[in-house]
Every structure is written in C-alpha cells, then in structure tokens.
C-alpha cells in the first residue's frame, strides 16, 4: 500500500492498560507489513475519549451489561453470574473469538455464544444479534480482555471458514465494485471524501460511534461498508459475516483487544 498515514500516538487506558495499537502483521497477511488499530486514524479529540473509562461513552453500555450479567432471566432461574461468576472470568475470551465450537461443529461468534447460553442454558429468549442489549454484553466481555493480544485460530477446523472469509474480503461487490481490500488494504491512510481510511480492524469492537451515538457491532459495520458499495449486503449473524469476522479478526492477530473503542 502507498503510505500508512497512521499517527504515532500511544494508547494507555486509565493510565494502566497498555494497548498494542501497532505491530508486525501476522504471517498470513501477504500485502501488509504493519497492522494498525483504527484508533490511529482518528483525530486527537476522538482518541482521547478512549484513554479514560470515565470519558468513554461506550462504558455506559458496559455498565448496563454488568447489570444484565447479574439479572436472573428465563425458565431455569439463572443469570450469567450463576454459572460464570464475575464478568472478569471472561478475561481472554474476546481475544480468541470467533472460534471453532466443537459441539456446534462450526465457528461461532461471541454473540452466538451468549445467545446459546440464553436459549439452551437459561431457558431465556435470545437477544437480537446486533441489538443494544447484545452489543452491550459483547462490550462487557471485551472490556475485561483489553490489552490482551487478539489471537484467533485460523487453522484446523476453522480453516475452511477462514478461507471463505478471505474470499469475501477480496470480492468486489455492488455497482461500485469495491472490496474490503480496495479500501482497507490498498488505500488505508488515505482520505476517501471526508473519511480517513483505516485498515478496518475489529480489535476495537464493539465501537461507540460519535456519529450514531451508540455501541456498534462488527457485523453492523460490515453491513454498512458493503451497502456503501451499492451492493446487496449479507445479514448480521449470517454464515458469510461469521466467516468474514473470523478473517478480519485474524488480520488483527497481535493487536490488543480494545473494545469498547470510540470512533467517529
């Protein structure tokens, strides 16, 4: 790629959690040497929101999810806490998802795991895949892994899903015929109209966007980007987006989990 106009600022959250926002690309990446968190491509003002949890509007969702974590729901009379204890027990989980689930025989996302526990272990209704309640919960689970390097597995039983995701990443869609790679691999660091293009990493998800003032899931973001190519999108939670999430996550192997992050 032509040039990476990522800034050189350092991200430390609450003065104690060091975030790896720049590192050497994982070996499977053919066209990129260095990977950057999307944080580097945002303005100083936007970046600052993430340096302290009191300033991070995404932490409001984390607080709401903490209440839900302890709230009994469903026919089994259980809460997340009944089985998992403190939310801190989820430390490390976000870093390895999406992940192959032996029992389901497929790669699953965090949101799918949460709904699986709700429907099969709590006897509760599932939450809407990209809805606020779910995205808040994924943000809570992410928040306890902040600072840990993303490390999703791409081989073994996950490999065919990963390959499907890679194909989707390079497919040029819609009437504008643009792929994820056109914008986030060939053109990161450049301006596309008013937007400073990042590498489209998902280590920061869920992201609180100043634009729509809420936490956004990775699949909602994917949908928006595909729609902007004047294409028919895939649905959040679809096999295609699960595969794409695994592939995109793997492009960020080595960056710290950062969610909930703040973007514009």
């Amino acid at each position: 790629s032509a040039f990476a106009d990522a800034d050189t600022d350092k991200l430390v959250i609450n003065g104690e959690i060091d975030i790896i926002t720049t590192t050497v690309a994982p070996a499977h990446l053919e066209n990129v040497d260095t990977i950057y968190s999307g944080w580097h491509f945002r303005s100083d003002e936007t970046q600052a929101f993430q340096m302290d949890d009191f300033d991070n509007p995404g932490m409001i969702g984390v607080e709401k999810a903490s209440e839900n974590w302890d709230t009994v729901d469903g026919s089994e009379g259980k809460s997340c806490a009944s089985c998992h204890g403190e939310a801190e027990s989820m430390a490390g989980v976000r870093a390895v998802y999406p992940k192959y689930n032996e029992e389901k025989g497929k790669v699953t996302t965090l949101a799918m795991e949460v709904n699986n526990c709700r429907t099969e272990r709590m006897g509760a209704e599932k939450w809407k895949y990209t809805g606020g309640t779910m995205t808040d919960m994924v943000a809570l689970i992410s928040s306890v892994s902040r600072g840990m390097p993303v490390n999703v597995a791409i081989d073994g039983p996950a490999q065919s899903t990963w390959e499907q995701g890679k194909e989707l990443y390079y497919a040029r869609t819609g009437q504008l015929e643009l792929s994820c790679a056109n914008c986030h691999e060939d053109s990161y660091g450049m301006m596309i109209r008013a937007d400073h293009l990042s590498q489209g990493q998902i280590n920061g998800f869920p992201t609180y966007r100043l634009k729509n003032t809420k936490l956004n899931s990775a699949h909602a973001r994917f949908k928006g980007c595909v729609r902007d190519t004047r294409a028919e999108t895939y649905n959040p939670g679809s096999d295609e987006f699960i595969a794409l999430e695994l592939y995109v996550a793997s492009r960020g192997n080595g960056l710290s989990v950062e969610g909930p992050s703040v973007r514009n």
Binding site: R172, G174, E232, T233
Partner: peptide
C-alpha cells in the same frame, strides 16, 4: 456486477 444492490439500500 456481483451482488448488485438497489442503490444504497443494501437490498438486491
């Protein structure tokens, strides 16, 4: 085109 959408609606 591949997966042509109806302008920016996200629909086919």
């Amino acid at each position: 085109f591949y997966r042509l959408g109806d302008a920016y609606t996200g629909k086919a």
